[in-house]
Lab assay of single mutants.
Amino acid sequence: TKVFYNGTYVEFNNPEKAKKYAEKVAKKVGGTFTEKNGQFHVE
């Protein structure tokens, strides 16, 4: 499961961990995250 952010991504074996990371990054940058095709995108 990949989490895309700012033109790069971090890959996780565990979708649950990926979601938590996406939430954390989104919170940090004051943005939101969306799930597309089983991957997370932070905006």
Rank of each mutant, 00 (worst) to 15 (best):
V42Y: 03
N13F: 11
V25S: 04
N37D: 14
V42G: 00
H41S: 05
K24T: 13
K17G: 09
K27C: 10
G7N: 09
P15S: 11
F4P: 00
E35N: 06
K24N: 11
K36F: 10
F4A: 02
K36I: 14
K28C: 15
K17W: 11
T8L: 10
T34K: 11
K20F: 08
V42R: 00
A26C: 08
V29F: 11
F40V: 03
T34Q: 10
T32K: 11
F40A: 01
A26M: 03
A22T: 01
K27L: 13
H41N: 06
K28W: 14
K19I: 07
T8D: 08
A22P: 01
T32I: 13
E11W: 14
F33E: 01
E35H: 07
T34C: 13
P15Y: 15
T32S: 11
E11P: 05
K2F: 10
K27A: 12
Q39W: 07
T32D: 05
V25T: 08
F33K: 03
A18V: 00
V29L: 12
T8K: 12
V42W: 04
A18Q: 01
T1K: 05
N14I: 06
Y9K: 04
A26W: 03
G31T: 07
E23T: 07
Y5T: 04
E43P: 03
G7M: 05
F33Y: 14
G38F: 04
N37L: 08
T34R: 11
V10K: 13
A18W: 01
T8C: 11
V10I: 13
K2Y: 10
E35K: 07
F4M: 04
N13R: 12
V25P: 01
E35D: 05
V42Q: 01
E23K: 09
Y5F: 13
V29D: 04
V25W: 13
V42E: 00
N13V: 12
T34F: 15
H41Q: 06
P15H: 15
V3W: 00
K28G: 08
T8A: 11
K36E: 08
Y9L: 06
K17S: 15
K19T: 03
V29Q: 06
G31A: 09
G31M: 06
N37R: 06
T34L: 11
A26D: 02
E16M: 11
E11G: 06
H41E: 06
T32F: 14
Q39A: 14
T8Y: 14
G30V: 04
A26K: 01
K2R: 12
V29T: 10
N37G: 09
F40N: 02
K28N: 10
K2T: 06
K36D: 06
N6R: 12
A22M: 02
N14T: 14
E43F: 15
F12I: 03
E11T: 14
Y21H: 08
E11H: 10
F40W: 13
V3G: 01
A26N: 02
A18F: 01
Y9E: 07
A26H: 03
N13T: 13
K36L: 11
K27N: 12
K24V: 11
F4V: 06
K17V: 14
T1G: 04
V10A: 07
A26E: 00
E43K: 10
G7T: 04
E23V: 08
Y21C: 08
T32E: 06
Q39Y: 09
F12K: 02
T32G: 05
E35W: 11
N6Q: 11
F4T: 04
E11S: 13
E35C: 12
P15F: 15
P15D: 05
V3P: 00
Y21L: 03
G7E: 06
E16S: 10
P15A: 13
K19R: 15
Y9F: 12
V25E: 05
K24Q: 14
K28L: 15
Y5K: 02
H41R: 06
K27D: 08
E16A: 11
K28I: 14
T32A: 07
Y21A: 03
Q39T: 09
T8R: 12
G38P: 00
E16D: 12
E23M: 12
V10P: 00
G30D: 06
E16W: 09
V42M: 03
V25K: 07
A18K: 00
F12H: 02
E16Y: 09
V3Y: 00
G31L: 06
N14Y: 05
V25M: 14
K24W: 15
N6E: 08
F40P: 01
N14M: 06
N37A: 08
K20W: 12
T1I: 14
T32C: 11
T1Q: 05
G7L: 05
F40I: 08
T34N: 07
V10Y: 09
G31H: 04
